[in-house]
């Protein structure tokens, strides 16, 4: 029975991770085509950093990811606070609507956003991309932060009031430090979501503002280049570190 359990789990994880392992292994493959193994090399990594177009796209991607995740975190945290602190009619349906946007297909969001931007007469580029990324990151931040604060003993806020704290002091000394791990986790989540988004970005960005996932997408259409393997390996490692960091942030300091 124990053997069965273990082998079942092994299968699940093989299924999940074999494609990624293949990618990582081939990023060190000296052969130009992915079909044969010709010894280990780091030359694709070197080539990757020489590719200016890719590097520019990377800078753009990181710029969008940093700004959109910060904006989404600020708005989302305050939104989650509003859901926690205030009781108003329609609170529950509104909160359910947060989930709806989270679950709605990227393609729907992408097309609806591009329609909106065209109607508003916005030029597709950095601004539209930023707005779109803030939009799809927002619900994730709200849900992450709300999940944490809704677990707080509401008497803690009463206690702060009782000891003489005003609204701002309650936010600054009680709510913010207590939610900080969730806020950080929400930010990291937004950052990674923004960094690897393809579908929404495909619709809302313009030709002069290229971002990494779209660049890779267009490169791959002409066949997978080894430096793309190297790039994807780096991105995977980065994501892995972010996930681990987010996990510890949420876990730490909880009661």
């Amino acid at each position: 029975m124990a053997l069965l359990k273990r082998s079942y789990l092994t299968l699940v994880y093989l299924f999940l991770y074999i494609p990624i392992l293949v990618l990582i292994v081939y990023s060190f493959n000296a052969a130009k085509y992915a079909t044969v193994w010709k010894g280990a090399t780091l030359k694709w990594y070197a080539k990757l950093f020489e590719n200016e177009m890719l590097m520019d796209a990377m800078v753009n991607s990181i710029t969008v990811a940093v700004t959109s995740s910060i904006v989404a975190t600020a708005i989302g945290t305050l939104g989650a606070l509003a859901f926690y602190r205030y009781r108003f009619t329609g609170r529950k349906p509104l909160y359910a609507m947060v989930y709806t946007t989270m679950m709605s297909p990227d393609i729907v969001m992408g097309i609806s956003l591009v329609c909106l931007f065209v109607i508003l007469g916005l030029k597709l580029g950095f601004i539209t991309l930023l707005l779109a990324h803030v939009t799809f990151c927002l619900p994730f931040v709200i849900v992450t932060v709300y999940a944490r604060i809704s677990g707080f003993d509401p008497a803690v806020i009463d206690a702060a009031k009782d000891l003489g704290a005003g609204e701002f002091q309650i936010f600054r000394h009680i709510i913010l430090p207590m939610t900080a791990p969730a806020v950080a986790a929400g930010w990291l989540l937004s950052f990674t979501l923004s960094l690897d988004d393809v579908i929404v970005s495909f619709f809302v960005t313009g030709p002069e503002f290229e971002i990494l996932p779209l660049k890779i997408y267009s490169m791959v259409r002409l066949g997978v280049k080894p430096e793309v393997n190297a790039l994807c390996t780096l991105m995977f490692i980065f994501t892995l570190l972010s996930v681990i960091a987010a996990h510890y942030l949420v876990k730490e300091k909880t009661k």
């Binding site: 003993d153 008497a155 803690v156 009463d158 206690a159 009782d162 300091k253």
Partner: peptide, 14 residues
Amino acid sequence: DVNTVFQSYALFPH
């Protein structure tokens, strides 16, 4: 000029 001891203690965990 009144202070309270709450049922759940409501201490600040951080």
